[in-house]
């Protein structure tokens, strides 16, 4: 089940995820994020808040990378990671592509 809330303030889209982000809910998350970005149009800045996420699958990593690429990696960030999720991003080298905190 997807646990996603989002807040759009002008060009800033904040997506707050919770629970287990795996192959069962990542496609839905992907579709929702894409739809919101389409609504905002050019110049969007995206923040993924992973404070409540306890597991990240390959599928969700693809959602994250896709969103980062869609908006320009400088305008994309992942925030509120639990420490082991932060290490996961570092191990994957994704902290070199966008901000992870």
């Amino acid at each position: 089940m997807l646990e996603l809330t989002y807040r759009a303030e002008q060009t800033l889209l904040t997506c707050t995820f919770a629970g287990r982000m795996d192959g069962s809910n990542s496609p839905e998350a992907d579709a929702l994020v894409k739809a919101k970005l389409a609504e905002i149009g050019d110049g969007a800045t995206v923040v993924f808040d992973l404070g409540g996420v306890g597991y990240v699958s390959s599928a969700f990593l693809r959602v994250i990378i896709g969103a980062a690429k869609a908006v320009d990696e400088a305008k994309f960030s992942v925030v509120n990671c639990q420490p082991f999720i932060k290490r996961l991003f570092v191990d994957a080298g994704l902290d070199r592509l966008f901000s992870v905190s």
Binding site: Y55, V56, S57, S58, L61, R87, L88, D91, A92, G93
Partner: peptide
């Protein structure tokens, strides 16, 4: 492979 390693670590 790096992505897989990161996911596997959980």
């Amino acid at each position: 492979a790096t992505m897989a390693a990161a996911v596997f670590s959980q």
